[in-house]
Design a protein around this nucleic acid. Structure first.
Lengths: 336, 336
DNA sequence: CTGAAAGCGCTAACAA
DNA sequence: TTGTTAGCGCTTTCAG
């Protein structure tokens, strides 16, 4: 079942069929109609691999670092929803943790002639991202910092962190500690969301006159990291009255450490996460967190990508979305 | 940068390059060496879309119904691990809930010339699955029932359910209720894991002489379903002393309903889930659950698929893996 | 507005 | 063992 069959059945040339397929200029309504009917009748579907050889594959690749992170599906949904009712199909690259795996997946996507790439929170150096963007339209999600080569969509992590600090300060907390993801790579120091959350925390503490109370523990954005970070904090002479974990996952680990220490949340200590994942919403956990509007992030990324596919030359755009605070039961007024 | 460039650079024919690329028969070690060097030197990468036009695309598609379900990533990892160090690249189709979305995604994968498909817990009728399997090598994961067209990998849900029932009975429970996913479609009634869990529950209850205590509530495998199911069970004259939720998600909903009713787990009531997701492992939840060995499921699916790509004619195989019980703190001896 | 014909990059028959 | 050649299904000039 090829374009030739359709052409024969509709008594037109293959060129005509191709034009109808692509909604291209130069086909009369009558011909369109006729071809459409044949396509439907024969149940013809264009072979994307063959299309790719000359034009587009109508395929968009999303690279995401970790399927397990419950925050990413929201972004993916935002992307796919945007592409529904277009001819594009979205495919995901599986678990890419680390630069090497990222390179493997992105190369594979380019080899498969994908028309555009959406990279979610990539860890590769900026030069590699720009290299990719030179080969194929690319949108980078979750990396701050502008590039003349690719568009970006980020959530305002500085503001997000301050939402949490302000909330806790308003509740009367002063000793508010933060558990961050240790970052050493200089590019990533400047561009990754985690570092901006820490920076936002510092600024917000200062803004509320609590610069002296600033207390950052560097571990990692994992449950383990939260557990270890909390242990360090609990060993302080003056224990913090509130902990701002850099991600909901991290807060899970903190909960474990607190449980071990027979401390209860929020009575003994207030706790917040970040990302508003489904974990946070669980009634038995009920974690105050920051919602990043993942669906909107995905939608914007899709829109920018489609724009760029249409016009590769236009200047790059940076979209920054605003987070919102979701208050739940893990935060309460500071005791005394 | 095409195969022609490589051929010129290595001073050989394109055929030779192609053979080296595919490790095909008929290229001397010397030539292999020479071509490999040119490929490396030029940084050449074959264009998968073009390969697809004649032979394979070296792409495997995984369709999974819901990225959010924390059980699926294990399977995906199992698949990708198996394909690491092969020339194949795995790509995922995003959220396919419902027959229509499944069809869209599978069609898209076929249009893109994928060499094989792994369908995880598909809901499409068997005829559609067989139709797909006729077009491209296919392995179906998580559907019981044999087909002469495709291989299957399932976990033994009958045994899994009995593990839970036996565990609870051994703890002294007799009034053990089960919350199941309501299924009406006849094919799915026979093939879906959820129905087999219910059947396993019934059989195990009977085997332990508790046929009269059998108590099944039909809702759905969602948090909401668990919540509603638990409410029904709590309204019983004789409240069950243990609840076997058909999935960890469902158990989450049950936990909510129990919390509302001021009942504590496991003191007032024992609770189990199924799937051993990361939720279950959370210390503050600590849910007894059944582990399905997702990684092994994925690995087996990958192996079968590769076998079938190699030999499309061989008879189909059904792999059934055995689940294990993970006992945590949500189950305890029945009071009195 | 329509169609004929020349490839896109690669593989697979077939010849040498 | 090697190379020549004819396509795979589609898009895209370029004539008509």
């Amino acid at each position: 079942m090829t374009i030739v069959d359709v052409a024969r059945h509709a008594q037109v040339s293959t060129t005509a069929v191709s034009k109808v397929l692509r909604n291209a200029y130069g086909a009369s309504p009558a011909m369109r109609e006729k071809v459409q009917r044949s396509i439907a009748e024969l149940g013809y579907r264009p072979y994307a691999a063959a299309r790719g050889l000359r034009g587009q594959t109508y395929t968009i690749g999303i690279m995401l670092p970790d399927i397990r992170n419950p925050f990413f599906p929201d972004i993916v949904d935002g992307v796919t929803d945007w592409f529904t009712d277009t001819d594009y199909q979205v495919l995901l690259g599986p678990g890419c943790n680390g630069e090497e795996a990222e390179a493997r997946v992105t190369e594979a996507m380019i080899d498969r002639g994908m028309d555009g790439l959406i990279l979610i929170a990539p860890v590769s150096p900026r030069s590699h991202l720009e290299h990719l963007a030179n080969l194929v339209p690319t949108v980078v999600v979750g990396r701050h910092g502008h590039s003349p080569r690719y568009d970006t969509v980020v959530d305002d992590d500085l503001t997000g962190a301050s939402l949490i600090v302000d909330h806790l300060v308003d509740l009367g907390h002063r000793r508010i500690a933060h558990i961050e993801h240790l970052e050493t790579d200089p590019t990533r120091l400047a561009e990754m969301p985690n570092t901006l959350r820490t920076e936002g925390y510092r600024r917000a503490m200062s803004a509320r006159g609590l610069a002296d109370e600033t207390d950052v523990v560097s571990t990692s954005y994992t449950q383990e990291g939260g557990y270890l970070g909390a242990q360090q904090l609990l060993a302080r002479e003056q224990r913090p009255t509130a902990i701002f974990a850099g991600a909901d996952f991290v807060a899970m680990g903190v909960l474990e450490a607190l449980a071990e220490a027979k401390l209860s949340v929020p009575e003994d200590i207030s706790l917040t996460g970040y990302d508003n994942t489904s974990f946070a919403a669980l009634r038995s956990i009920s974690l105050t967190s920051v919602d990043q509007a993942g669906h909107a992030i995905g939608g914007n990324a899709a829109r920018l990508l489609l724009d760029r596919i249409t016009d590769r030359g236009r200047p790059t755009v940076q979209v920054k979305l605003s987070p919102t605070l979701i208050v739940r039961n893990s935060t309460a007024p500071a005791s005394k």
